[in-house]
């Protein structure tokens, strides 16, 4: 019952905020609507007994990622730039038409088999009594979440998926390094591709006495 009420409140909100992201002209407004959309999706996660993901969604998406977006929008000052002019005639109509086709295909192909009333998921409170009758029946997470959702996800991440988990840490380090290299202010275009070669190497290596003295002097002149 709670799930039904929440779903029919949250689903239109989610669709409305998503549409606003596409329709609103001002990028700041679009970003704020996107934050709203992330919150609605977090609520849906909580309804679907994915409490860990609901919290992570709020912290990572609505917190970190959207702050990054807003920061860049403000930094570049592009909130008054208008787009929406059509460069190719009929592009927008074609895009909407293809979108409708894709929506029909996805609804029939992915959601279609699970639209029947027998696919309703049993919540943890109301345990499923008889075993799943139809192949489309929803099993529910009562069993998997028996020790708590965070415990279950954590057990999977640190046993079966520990190798992908380690790889994601490497990925994050690479992303941070990439952002640093890209965000570095370049005096010339060639700086972007050739950072290392422009570094001045002293004759006697970094430990060279004259180089150290010069470094010290430059630091005193301009302590940055």
């Amino acid at each position: 019952m709670t799930e039904t009420v929440l779903f029919w409140i949250i689903a239109p909100l989610s669709l409305g905020t998503a549409l606003s992201v596409v329709v609103l002209r001002n990028p700041v407004h679009a970003a704020l609507m996107l934050v709203g959309n992330f919150f609605t999706i977090a609520v849906l996660y909580a309804v679907m007994e994915a409490q860990f993901l609901a919290v992570v969604q709020v912290i990572v998406y609505a917190g970190a990622i959207m702050v990054l977006f807003l920061f860049v929008i403000m930094l570049l000052g592009v909130e008054r730039q208008l787009d929406f002019g059509e460069r190719i005639r009929g592009q927008r109509a074609a895009a909407v038409f293809l979108g409708v086709v894709l929506l029909a295909a996805l609804t029939v192909g992915v959601a279609g088999p699970y639209l029947g009333a027998d696919s309703a998921c049993p919540t943890t409170a109301e345990q499923q009594t008889e075993p799943a009758a139809s192949p489309q029946a929803c099993r529910g997470l009562a069993e998997a979440n028996a020790d708590g959702n965070v415990f279950g996800v954590g057990r999977l991440v640190f046993t079966d998926y520990v190798w992908p988990f380690e790889v994601t840490s490497v990925l994050l380090v690479i992303a941070a390094l990439g952002a640093m290299v890209l965000g570095r202010r370049a005096e010339q275009d060639s700086d972007l591709v050739d950072v290392l070669r422009r570094e001045r190497v002293p004759a006697g290596g970094v430990g060279d006495a004259s180089y150290q003295a010069e470094l010290q002097q430059s630091l005193e002149e301009d302590p940055r």
Binding site: F7, L15, A95, V100, L115, T123
Partner: peptide
């Protein structure tokens, strides 16, 4: 009566299509 799982999938499909159309029409 709970919500059939397909409704969530349909909602996700709609959100995905909105994203696709957004990438196609915004500049």
């Amino acid at each position: 009566m709970a919500v059939p799982a397909g409704y969530y999938l349909a909602l996700a499909a709609a959100l995905f299509v909105i994203g696709v159309v957004g990438v196609l029409i915004r500049r």
